[in-house]
Simulated scan of single mutants.
Amino acid sequence: MYVSTDDENIKKIAIDYGALVIDRPQSLSGDLEPTISTLQHVLAELDDAAIETVVLLQPTNPLRPEILFKKVFIEFKAKNCTSVFTVTRNHDKLGKIVNNTFVPFNYTPGQRSQDLEPLYYENGLLYITTANAIRDGSIMTEDALPFVVEHPFSKVDIDTQEDLEYAEYVFNNITS
């Protein structure tokens, strides 16, 4: 397992847990840098054409059901995919605000939420992609297979302090 970081504290923790660390340059760090550039840097640093598959576990989505990786990887191999990523069904009535007016997006007013057409969101729990797709600039290829995950962990995405507190609550109160 490799950890790409520019942070000395994260580097130390990763090493303590047995990970190999790739020092990420400042130019590839920061809130606005896309993940793909970091993955491409890792592959270039490893300089190993024998790497066939990349598994991405985003640190902002730290909770995963125990058997998720195994299930997704089996599907990735069985379907001979270029990439697979996890999604979760959204059960909300969504809309946009246009000129101070709410315009429903996925329902008509009065429609029951249980009758909504299924919509899904990319939950960030797990991505598996061929190394060649990463080298070519894609984590999720055009033919990417969505793998549906219906688990409370799929709603954990840490971007704020409140998100961290929610993640801690879920971790302490829900079994994987």
Score class of each variant (00 low, 15 high):
residue 1 M to C: 07
residue 2 Y to V: 13
residue 2 Y to D: 06
residue 3 V to T: 04
residue 6 D to C: 00
residue 7 D to Y: 02
residue 12 K to E: 08
residue 13 I to N: 06
residue 14 A to K: 01
residue 16 D to Y: 03
residue 17 Y to T: 13
residue 21 V to A: 13
residue 25 P to N: 04
residue 27 S to V: 03
residue 33 E to Q: 10
residue 34 P to S: 06
residue 39 L to G: 11
residue 39 L to W: 10
residue 43 L to T: 06
residue 44 A to D: 14
residue 44 A to V: 10
residue 45 E to L: 09
residue 45 E to F: 10
residue 48 D to G: 02
residue 49 A to K: 07
residue 49 A to W: 06
residue 52 E to W: 02
residue 52 E to K: 15
residue 53 T to P: 04
residue 53 T to F: 08
residue 53 T to A: 03
residue 53 T to G: 03
residue 56 L to F: 07
residue 57 L to I: 04
residue 58 Q to C: 11
residue 60 T to Q: 05
residue 61 N to P: 00
residue 63 L to Y: 01
residue 66 E to G: 09
residue 70 K to W: 08
residue 70 K to H: 12
residue 70 K to P: 00
residue 70 K to S: 13
residue 72 V to L: 11
residue 75 E to H: 11
residue 76 F to T: 10
residue 76 F to P: 11
residue 76 F to D: 09
residue 80 N to L: 11
residue 81 C to T: 09
residue 90 N to C: 15
residue 90 N to V: 11
residue 91 H to D: 14
residue 92 D to N: 14
residue 93 K to R: 15
residue 94 L to V: 02
residue 95 G to K: 01
residue 100 N to W: 02
residue 100 N to L: 07
residue 103 V to P: 04
residue 104 P to H: 14
residue 106 N to M: 04
residue 106 N to W: 04
residue 107 Y to P: 01
residue 109 P to T: 14
residue 111 Q to G: 02
residue 111 Q to Y: 05
residue 112 R to N: 06
residue 117 E to A: 14
residue 117 E to D: 12
residue 119 L to G: 02
residue 119 L to D: 09
residue 121 Y to S: 12
residue 121 Y to V: 13
residue 123 N to L: 12
residue 126 L to Y: 06
residue 127 Y to T: 13
residue 128 I to E: 08
residue 128 I to L: 09
residue 130 T to F: 05
residue 132 N to T: 15
residue 132 N to H: 11
residue 134 I to E: 08
residue 138 S to A: 15
residue 139 I to G: 02
residue 140 M to Q: 09
residue 140 M to P: 00
residue 140 M to G: 04
residue 141 T to R: 07
residue 143 D to V: 10
residue 143 D to E: 13
residue 147 F to V: 00
residue 147 F to P: 00
residue 147 F to N: 04
residue 147 F to W: 05
residue 150 E to T: 13
residue 150 E to P: 06
residue 150 E to W: 11
residue 152 P to W: 13
residue 154 S to R: 09
residue 160 T to Y: 07
residue 160 T to F: 01
residue 160 T to R: 01
residue 161 Q to C: 06
residue 161 Q to T: 11
residue 162 E to D: 15
residue 163 D to Q: 05
residue 163 D to V: 02
residue 167 A to I: 01
residue 168 E to F: 05
residue 171 F to K: 10
residue 172 N to P: 10
residue 172 N to C: 12
residue 173 N to A: 01
residue 176 S to V: 00
residue 176 S to W: 03
residue 176 S to N: 04
